[in-house]
Design a protein around this nucleic acid. Sequence first.
DNA 1: AATGAATGAGAGTTCATTCAT
DNA 2: TATGAATGAACTCTCATTCAT
Lengths: 216, 216, 216, 216
Amino acid sequence: MSTNSPRWETEEQQPSGADGRTLTSRGVRTRGAILEAAESVFAEHGYHDASIVKITEAASVAQGTFYLYFESKQQVFNELVRDLNRRVRHAMSERAAQARTRAERERLGFRGYFEFVAEHPALYRIIRQAEIVAPDILREHYERISKGYVDGLRAAMATGEIGESDPQVLSWILMGIGEIVGARWVLWGETDTVPDDVFENVMRFIERGLASREEM
Amino acid sequence: MSTNSPRWETEEQQPSGADGRTLTSRGVRTRGAILEAAESVFAEHGYHDASIVKITEAASVAQGTFYLYFESKQQVFNELVRDLNRRVRHAMSERAAQARTRAERERLGFRGYFEFVAEHPALYRIIRQAEIVAPDILREHYERISKGYVDGLRAAMATGEIGESDPQVLSWILMGIGEIVGARWVLWGETDTVPDDVFENVMRFIERGLASREEM
Amino acid sequence: MSTNSPRWETEEQQPSGADGRTLTSRGVRTRGAILEAAESVFAEHGYHDASIVKITEAASVAQGTFYLYFESKQQVFNELVRDLNRRVRHAMSERAAQARTRAERERLGFRGYFEFVAEHPALYRIIRQAEIVAPDILREHYERISKGYVDGLRAAMATGEIGESDPQVLSWILMGIGEIVGARWVLWGETDTVPDDVFENVMRFIERGLASREEM
Amino acid sequence: MSTNSPRWETEEQQPSGADGRTLTSRGVRTRGAILEAAESVFAEHGYHDASIVKITEAASVAQGTFYLYFESKQQVFNELVRDLNRRVRHAMSERAAQARTRAERERLGFRGYFEFVAEHPALYRIIRQAEIVAPDILREHYERISKGYVDGLRAAMATGEIGESDPQVLSWILMGIGEIVGARWVLWGETDTVPDDVFENVMRFIERGLASREEM
DNA sequence: AATGAATGAGAGTTCATTCAT
DNA sequence: TATGAATGAACTCTCATTCAT
């Protein structure tokens, strides 16, 4: 079984101004500074209390500058969620690519996920606000991660490594587990990563849950 | 094994005015009307777009009246989340109490949960905003539900019905699954409940995941 | 010929809040203060430089109070133009009603018009901005005054007092004359009314212009 | 009586940079492009909504370039009004120059005026904003046209072709008529010129109004 | 001569909260 | 107990203008 093709990976995009124009290098830098500032301000204060003033102050630019690069507060939020989605999928793929077996792959994917959340707690806090602020973008986010799981699960079912089951449902289960465990032990916990024993418990649960009947 | 004691059930509270004074029956009625109005307005518009004007209009009282019963918008939100927590635990307990076996208990608890979400989608949408708006209340919410699971899981481990594992971790896994499946199939789906086949897939996954090694 | 029925007269309206609710006497007073302030601020600074801050400061109320009584800056402007229209027609009708002959009627109508402009120069300056800011309301304004003239002209043609001509065209001519003379001698001039000799020149021109051929 | 000397005609000016420096031919071209763009943008959006961005985009130059040729938005507006004034007087003179009699001269002047408005409705809309935006320039505009009329009227009075009257007052009356008729039938009407019957009605009114007593 | 990124004051508007009645 | 007018700070966003390149 081929285990080294990235499962959640995706394409890149190229930054432009609020009106779609291409940017000079100075512009790219400024845009990046605003995006970074927005990331941390959204994470700290939440969407609504993250004012343009706070964001531009954090980016050390004037208020008006914000609107040279983004159409609105909403748009920069959407972009951040999409960005987060790309990065988290990249983190998972990169880790999973090192796996030698199917089971290892799942483990490494989750590890990658938890590491990402641990490294970008701020950024990850953002997504939990999207339900109200940008529901479409949020579903897009879940769908994309789900798709990465579905592809892997389907392949593993084909080889009999895991039991037959609806891969769609399984993919959402896995996301649900990842999300709440990430929230509980990384975002809210005092630890800066998921403790090993917790991780082992989680993975054991998942492996049993996925197991084919014969294995049981 | 005793299966009929409610696992998630909890205590009630007694309404009072914003300054803690006890209420006349008229006051109790007004307070209730505002709370109800707040529930639907928060659910429809989200915390920030739910203005006091909208709430008081929906409750058919003057703006000032709101502050006779609640200290702030934040406080009424907190109260709603706590209320929601009580109700969802009640729904789960009530269902689970009908179970005859441990496994059935899990199934019925989940059924109860999904039914509650299905019946109060509006209300349930509220909780997903609490992460930022009232993080402490949100964790309290999760901890309470978690505790209900932990008690049951511990008992089941003692009798060997399920494998040994950290019940804390398992409880969060179960919550994570419940939440995302509820969101995906009830809140965002067109169906007004979790479809049977999805439910079966979920429960099979959970039962295997929880199984004791000997069973496998 | 009946000359004592008001030709430009019209109906009154009853003030209400921005959301249509009826007002207490305190509310009526506040609303009036804002309207009055808006009138003078619009007149002095023009629509665009008349900020809500300036208006509310002039009315000695807080900024938010403005929005209790008016939906927007645009709406209060529209209301002022409509109000102006009602008042100017009232002023003309009132004067014209004292006339004993057709010719006197024209004279008195114009007098009334010039007096009104002289007494409310501020208010009258407003209308000249409406072309861009509220074109529909402006046309409504002209149409209503025009109608007042047309009725009178048609009656005078029927009795042969003035020559046959398209009353629509004549009414616009009369408005054009009134407007520019009012602007030139009252708004921009140092005099606070149209000087007698100018008035006589204007009226002579109009009377000849309207005269029936036989008279010539 | 001499009828062929242009009555409203005037002098030209020579374009220069914002700081008064003389321009290269490239500069002259750029300046012209901006002026032209400003004309159409002001006409379409009105003074305040005509942003420098819109103007420079329409002229296909960078924002900064605007300030190489004009000191401010206000200044370019002033220049446009003055330009419009020159052009409308030119149009009237050109037409009037073809007249053989005094009466024809009036008719042709008006025709020229209406044709100009019809051909440049956009441009003419600009002037109606000047009342607030550039009152001095507007009065200058009126004074100059008035002067053209006064000269002609005085000459006609001298020869007895029209009755004795204050030529200043008459000139303003004529402007008032021209302006409102132009607005009503060209700017707001669906027709793209003043209809013949309207024109005839207007001219008949004017001719009677101007007539000397003996003629009547 | 031309660019376009950057500025920052100020715009209209909203809304949680207070308080006189 | 209930009202609703009033507040004013804070919000998002615009735009004339400047200036380093």
